[in-house]
Amino acid sequence: MVLKNLIFLVSFFISITVSAEEDFTHYAFANYLGSGIYKTSGQNATVVNIPISFDIRNDDTSSLILRTPVSLGFFNFTWSDLPEGEFPDNVGTMTVTPGIEYRVNTSDDHEFQAYIDLGYGNNFTSGTNVAIYSAGVSSLLDLQLRQSDPVWVNRLFFAGYSSFDGKQNETYSALQSGVDIGTDIYWRWDWLGVDVEPRFFAAGYWYFDKLRFATPFGEDVLVSHSLEIGATLAFSKPILWEWMGIDRLGLSVRAGDGVQAWRLIFEFPI
């Protein structure tokens, strides 16, 4: 039943709308924008990320990780289809963005991360393909606040794509800062074999070169900043399959410059 419910939630949040002039942003940048239902000028574009990773090397102070997240999309599938028992019957888009991530503990309470990705995206409906590239650095600092174990996260990253025909390309870079804080409330889920803690987070995003969200109707929306708040259930170890890295399950809302997004979260949220 747990697996069935999780698969239902994944199906629930996977959809992308098609615009007259094709926009690659929502699925090309899916791994960096995050899973969710993006609403712009009344139009929905929903993507989901399936986190997949493997440890290449892991010791007491550092680790090297191979990340191969997959993002899927289904066309012509919306919230209103669910009460009628409608489910997506074909894959509309897929992106795979493999990359290497290096993590090192610089002190007992601080971790530095760096990554580089080179991936591929395909729109099965239009037959178009894009090359995706990204790099970034992060700082994660454990703070002391009673028993809540807050984590202050700062990230600086760059991402871009280029269509294989050379006609479209776009880049964006962003600064992200946020705090993830616990509740010091725990319970045991024996059927998953994990301890669970509810946690809350808030994060701000500032885009150095405005990120463009194309809409099927009306003008495109340029986003310069956004704010996100949400809640997750943190698991003591990854659930289902360890290689999928599902150590969180939660929901958040992100808004800014006319774009609103509801995100379904499967990993550390910020």
Rank of each mutant, 00 (worst) to 15 (best):
F75D: 01
L141R: 12
F29L: 05
V196E: 00
N5E: 15
E21Q: 11
P51R: 14
T78I: 11
E111F: 04
R146Y: 14
N105L: 05
F24G: 02
A261R: 12
I37Y: 12
V259H: 06
I7A: 10
G121K: 04
T17F: 01
V194R: 01
N44W: 07
S15V: 04
L118P: 02
G250N: 07
G92E: 00
T232G: 03
P98N: 04
S226P: 02
D195S: 06
G36V: 10
I246L: 04
V194L: 02
Y27D: 04
F266E: 00
K237V: 08
F217Y: 15
D89W: 09
I270A: 06
T125R: 09
E86C: 02
E267G: 11
L222N: 11
F77I: 03
E170Q: 06
F75Y: 09
L66T: 06
V223W: 01
E22L: 11
T17C: 03
P216F: 08
D165C: 09
N154V: 15
S35R: 10
F13N: 12
Q168P: 00
D195M: 04
D89A: 13
L233N: 07
T68D: 08
W187D: 01
Y115R: 04
S53L: 05
S53I: 06
F29T: 01
N31P: 01
L72Y: 03
D180Y: 13
D195L: 03
G73H: 01
G73C: 02
V96K: 00
E22F: 12
A202I: 11
P69I: 07
L192A: 07
N90W: 09
L72Q: 00
L156P: 02
Y27M: 04
S11V: 15
A45E: 10
S148I: 14
F75G: 02
S41K: 13
I50W: 02
L251C: 10
L143P: 03
D220H: 10
G136H: 03
G36R: 10
I270H: 04
W79L: 12
P83G: 00
T46K: 06
L33Y: 01
V70H: 07
F158N: 07
H225G: 13
Y172Q: 02
I246W: 03
G85I: 05
D180N: 12
N31K: 12
L140G: 01
F112R: 10
I100N: 01
Y161P: 03
N154K: 11
V48E: 07
N44T: 14
Q176L: 07
V70I: 15
S173T: 02
S35F: 08
S62N: 11
L211Y: 02
F112W: 15
F208G: 06
I7N: 14
F208Q: 08
L9K: 14
W206P: 05
P88H: 08
D142P: 02
F200Y: 03
Q113V: 15
V130N: 14
D55Q: 13
D247S: 11
I270Q: 09
A159W: 10
E228F: 06
E101S: 11
L211Q: 04
P216K: 13
M244G: 02
Q168H: 13
S63H: 08
L192M: 04
P83W: 05
Y172A: 06
T125D: 11
Q260H: 13
A135C: 10
F13W: 15
A255Y: 12
I65K: 13
F124N: 01
I116N: 10
R199E: 01
